[in-house]
Nucleic acid binder design. Sequence first.
DNA 1: ATATTTATAGATATTCTTATCCTTTTATAC
DNA 2: GTATAAAAGGATAAGAATATCTATAAATAT
Lengths: 165, 165
Amino acid sequence: MPLLSKSAEYAIRACIFIVARSQAGHKTGLKEVAAAIGSPVFFTAKILQGLSRQKLISSMKGPNGGFYVPEEAFDITLLDLVQAIDGTDLFTECGLGMKQCSDSNPCPIHDQYKPIRAQITAMMENTTIQSLARRAIIDANGKTIKGLSLKNDLPESVLSQKTAG
Amino acid sequence: MPLLSKSAEYAIRACIFIVARSQAGHKTGLKEVAAAIGSPVFFTAKILQGLSRQKLISSMKGPNGGFYVPEEAFDITLLDLVQAIDGTDLFTECGLGMKQCSDSNPCPIHDQYKPIRAQITAMMENTTIQSLARRAIIDANGKTIKGLSLKNDLPESVLSQKTAG
DNA sequence: ATATTTATAGATATTCTTATCCTTTTATAC
DNA sequence: GTATAAAAGGATAAGAATATCTATAAATAT
Ligand code: FES
Ligand code: FES
């Protein structure tokens, strides 16, 4: 079992890319996103549509359209994203799947699990997509993608394609 | 997304119960287990069969048969159990689903995720089912199940049914 | 206005997890 | 030995997550 759903993984990777591009002043089309992060195109579409509907990212239709994040929203966090996709279970629910989790009615692993769950929450809460974008993309101005390991065999030219927006 | 699969949750809850019963010298039948932990009977059967095949627990057929854990095996850990059911992904794989995870080829969340993953691993490695059983079941001799919150509306008489082994 | 581009929406397909049912095997009790 | 109790195994079903396809709507360029 992974920590995150496939949808959440793609969402995070996509948003890192989109934020990096937005910082450089570009919108990014669906196909560019999918190519950059190595995700199935149509599935990625669904995910981005959902994020757009929930106002975590923005989008524009038509020529030179695409997905972007306005500067005011750069500080969206991993927590925002994961909750939007996977819900709040990971951050609130019992590790053994009991109906409720509380100190007064703890399951056998409550004491061990609770601090770990809190740490996962804190980590995601304190990690902005923007900070990840800074780390992931060295030159987001349209040329190279050094250090972005979102996909192992990343084509070196994704960013420089034709989005001279 | 939960941390563990439903199968793993049931496996842990079942094993806590079975170990507690084994410590008291009893084998436990499938239906008793399912009733005690509030799990679907046939699904629980599959899970316990798998654990038995992997020698994490033992079983006996026939009248007065059932599942049990021999004393030598009381120290099986959460890690053993979870790995047997869900595999090793949670403990080794990249949090963003990249093909490989390493310090030399890190994904954007590697630095944040790696220590959390290590903590999850350590926690499970250091938690024996036996220790959870001690905490979960106060009187495992056949009468009451105080403090066992495996199921919220637990029938108070599960242990006292008819397994006078 | 028309054509083109791109996101959005809805429908469908595939795969995996979860769950159930039925038959067979093995052990015990008599 | 025969009957009974219980796990083991195989086949099937239901549901959810993942993935794909087609059609529609909106924005731009000409
Ligand atoms: S009750 Fe299970 S983790 Fe809190
Ligand atoms: S590469 Fe992603 S967590 Fe290590």
